[in-house]
């Protein structure tokens, strides 16, 4: 009884974690793709046009370049693809399909972001983060927040694997019971 209660609590926690992770990726994509001229989180920021998209991604490319990590030729392609990767990950995490694999991808991406943020903070680059919007200072708080996101990603991935394994064990135990009873 207690085991089954824990089991359902775990499932709820995994659901909350998955939705939170999806929200993080969707917010990050929104911050990079919404028009630069609009105020964030307003209706006008949802009026995306091809020109405003291009401008937002160009601006993100400049912010990415200020990290001084990527070769010049790689900045623009990464800036143009990363927001879409984040958007796709966010949507897929909402559906919950293939959570183990999505969890691995999301955790690796969050680990990479965290490492980049730690490096930039340690080097006192004094740049804008560009993580959730165009005007966001890279502060110590941002480093902690990104660490939290990484921990969440890791927890969701471990939870997804644990849930999958438990589900498989339960299913095989049920099958064995069915076979022995028949």
């Amino acid at each position: 009884m207690s085991s089954s209660t824990n089991w359902s609590k775990g499932r709820i926690l995994l659901l909350i974690g998955r939705l939170a992770l999806a929200a993080i990726f969707l917010a990050a994509a929104y911050g990079k793709l919404s028009p630069l001229t609009a105020k964030q989180w307003t209706l006008s920021s949802l009026k995306v046009t091809p020109a405003s998209l291009e401008l937002s991604m160009m601006f993100f490319a400049m912010q990415l370049s200020s990290y001084q990590m990527l070769p010049a030729w790689a900045v623009s392609p990464i800036a143009h693809s990363l927001p879409w990767v984040e958007l796709s990950l966010g949507i897929l995490l909402l559906t919950g399909l293939g959570l183990r694999y999505l969890g691995i991808i999301a955790t690796l991406l969050l680990a990479l972001f965290w490492a980049v943020i730690i490096r930039s903070y340690a080097l006192h680059l004094g740049i804008n983060c560009g993580c959730f919007g165009p005007n966001e200072k890279l502060t110590g708080w941002r480093v902690l927040e990104d660490g939290g996101f990484f921990a969440l990603g890791l927890a969701v991935t471990i939870g997804a694997f644990f849930y999958h394994r438990r589900h498989r064990v339960d299913a095989s135990a049920f099958a064995q019971t069915e076979v022995s009873s028949s």
């Binding site: 630069l36 160009m58 490319a61 370049s65 010049a72 623009s76 740049i127 804008n128």
Partner: peptide, 26 residues
């Protein structure tokens, strides 16, 4: 429209692309 500040500079080809995009906007 004034855009947010960018620190640490940027390579000329990137800035040029950004300016071209701005100039092409209505």
């Amino acid at each position: 429209t004034t855009y947010p500040p960018v620190s640490r500079g940027v390579a000329w080809p990137l800035l040029k692309q950004f300016f071209d995009q701005l100039l092409s906007q209505k």
